[in-house]
């Protein structure tokens, strides 16, 4: 890791406060192609994700949007036969597929929230404190403060402050998903990847999560994969439309939803297929 020009930040406090290298872009994806075995899942994708912006990935099922999302924190590493065939992803001025990159440290800066909420079968407090403990932080006061901040940021504090020591599995679906967001931001990552975060939630819980994304935008860079056009138009600054492993169009959300430049985008947004 010492060979890295700008090693991943060790302390969560620091990573949030220090000015980041890499200019305006948090993540740069350059000519990326990706295969599952012999089938090509992503074809030559080039995309820059802006710092403190929300980027939505939309597209029909199987278009590669989730695959691309999982490439950014290398969650695809565990899948047998999955590999990057061409191009690179640059986070903080380093190609994340470089052999010197420690994937554990990468994931500390690129957090992820999953489609189905997956809190650990332990207390609410311990769920949020998990990432901090994994980083070796033992100071009780620091952990307590961080847990409270994260839960407040995730707009969950008032609902759970009296039962922090109860099992997280006792929360409702929406609360569980917000807990997962709190857990992710507790370690102060640069980028938060969200893989259809609201697909299992009812409209009220969905609205809460969307509000949350909007309010947290000033501190984090979000990438949200969604099937829901309205959600994409509500939460995102920029939108990328994928189809059959290719990126068809990428631009300002407002423009994309009112005046798409490609016919296929328009067909998809207006519901003619997908």
């Amino acid at each position: 890791m010492n060979a890295t020009p700008n090693s991943m930040q060790e302390s969560p406090e620091k990573s949030a406060s220090t000015p980041h290298a890499g200019g305006k872009c948090a993540v740069q994806i350059q000519n990326l192609s990706f295969n599952y075995g012999s089938s090509e899942a992503l074809k030559n994708i080039t995309l820059d994700l802006e710092r403190n912006g929300v980027t939505a990935f939309i597209g029909p099922s199987g278009c590669g949007k989730s695959t691309l999302l999982r490439c950014i924190n290398r969650m695809n590493d565990e899948i047998v036969g999955a590999r990057v065939t061409k191009g690179k992803i640059i986070v903080e001025d380093i190609d994340i597929h470089d052999p010197s990159v420690d994937v554990v440290k990468l994931r500390r800066d690129v957090g992820m929230v999953f489609q189905k909420s997956n809190p650990f079968p332990r207390s609410i407090f311990e769920n949020v404190a998990f990432g901090l403990r994994m980083r070796g932080i033992r100071n009780k006061a620091v952990i307590e403060q961080s847990v409270e901040e994260s839960l407040r940021a995730a707009a969950l504090w008032d609902e759970v402050k009296d039962r922090l020591n109860e099992s997280a599995l006792g929360l409702s679906g929406g609360q569980q998903q917000r807990l997962c967001i709190a857990r992710t931001i507790a370690v102060k990552p640069l980028v938060v990847l969200m893989d259809e975060p609201c697909s299992a939630l009812d409209p009220i819980a969905t609205a809460k999560v969307e509000e949350l994304i909007w309010s947290l935008k000033k501190d984090y860079t979000f990438v949200v994969v969604t099937h829901n056009m309205h959600q994409a138009s509500r939460v995102s600054d920029k939108t990328a439309f994928f189809y059959m492993g290719e990126m068809i169009e990428f631009g300002e959300t407002t423009k994309m939803f009112t005046n798409p430049s490609v016919k296929r985008t328009e067909d998809y947004i207006s519901g003619r297929f997908g």
Partner: peptide, 21 residues
């Protein structure tokens, strides 16, 4: 559930930490 392992790894826990914690 594999979701536990995924969540733990996405939070930056190593294999060893994921296994034992």
């Amino acid at each position: 559930p594999s979701a536990y392992a995924e969540a733990s790894e996405a939070l930056g826990a190593s294999r060893l930490q994921t296994a034992f914690r």
